[in-house]
Amino acid sequence: MNKEPGMTLIVKTVTRISVWLIILYGFYIIFHGHLTPGGGFGGGVIIALALLNVLLAYGKDFTRKWLNIKLLENFESSSITLFLIVGIIGMAVGGSFLFNFIDKGTLFNMLSSGTILPLNIIIGIKVAMSLFLVVLALAAYNFDKGDEQ
């Protein structure tokens, strides 16, 4: 009876109300990776799951309208270059690749531990974007004809 894409109204509304909270929690996990369990890998997957939640609830057309897919692909590809750039700056400043060149800060502070925080953020972006793009490609893959729409 439900002609429009995606799931029922209940799922849509709950997704609508809760998606910002999931994304915020993913950012929390990423940004506290050097203080608490978690880090770039776990937080990235949480963000990817939040986006996937919207994809499953609303269908792929809505998601393509909401997110700029080209931008996400560019983020995904450029994050690894950012990682390399951090490493090369370390080489220029400290003499070795991926040298921890930023000030260490105080222990248990948010902005501490030098390059660990930026690298965590880069890995988080990388993991989130790549996993979401894989699922988006799988969703766009038409299973009946074995061909992409």
Binding site: T15, R16, I17, W20, I23, L24
Partner: peptide, 8 residues
């Protein structure tokens, strides 16, 4: 977060 998913 409000820029990414605030419109919902």
């Amino acid at each position: 977060v409000s820029l990414i998913a605030g419109q919902f």
